[in-house]
Amino acid sequence: MTVREHLLDARDLRVVFKGRRGKPPVAALDGVSITIGDGETLGLVGESGSGKSTLGRAILGLNRVQSGSIAFDGHDLFEWRRRNAREVAAALQVVFQDPYSSLNPTQTVGQILAEPLQAHGMRDRSELARRVYEMLDRVGLASEYVDRYPRQFSGGQRQRIAIARSLMLGPKLIVCDEALSALDLSVQAQVANVLMELQRELGLSYLFIAHDLSIVRLMAHRTVVMRHGQIVEQGPTDELYSAPKHPYTQALLAAEPVPDPVEQRRRRQARAALAQRGPMATA
């Protein structure tokens, strides 16, 4: 295997979508480069339409990439996927936002979790069962849930099932696209803990896409801020949050309300001052 510095090294990605109804084409990703190290979480923040999900989907092969390259685990990802999509699927997985449409309602939890293994040629029923139960346990779901259907679970439980499914093939990188966004605070905390624990135990890497700044600060080692298909700022999360350099990052951080009335009043005044210096507001 060639020497590699990062688990994932994406260079200069460009994704262009056809403009709808006579509108000109839009560059959803306009020359974006990121790296993700082993066992690292890269946070990806930005407002709606900034290209966050497009980047995740481009890496997963769900969007056509016009130009640029991705090296993953020492391979050219596009070439590797063409040659052996299954191998890539085993190493690169995804957890989506919507805990309702991301699970097939006609399959039981056991079938959902066994499917990736079966697709990769595993036939031994007892081995399948062993792996399924192990994974249920790992994400904190009771084993008697194995033959229930997604509709019988709450949002947080479904998200655990989705995480379990993404882990079945032993991936190295999981793209978490707003994976915690649909969850209530108390449940979000449970699932965030599961993700962090799995990272510690298995050395997983995450591309953690979210619009909620505070959850990214909790999860990500480094953070990338995107706007209009481009990266405006990136750096170690703590630095970026405590001393944002780009005015857009500053505006973003200043706009986030904090759950502390006294602090929030102070921030509101600071934001008003910031807005007077240079209007970054976008409605």
Partner: peptide, 16 residues
């Protein structure tokens, strides 16, 4: 639906 994307990401074939 996302579960179809998830299935593609898991390397499932079109027939399956």
């Amino acid at each position: 639906e996302l579960h179809v994307d998830a299935a593609k990401s898991a390397g499932l074939g079109a027939l399956r």
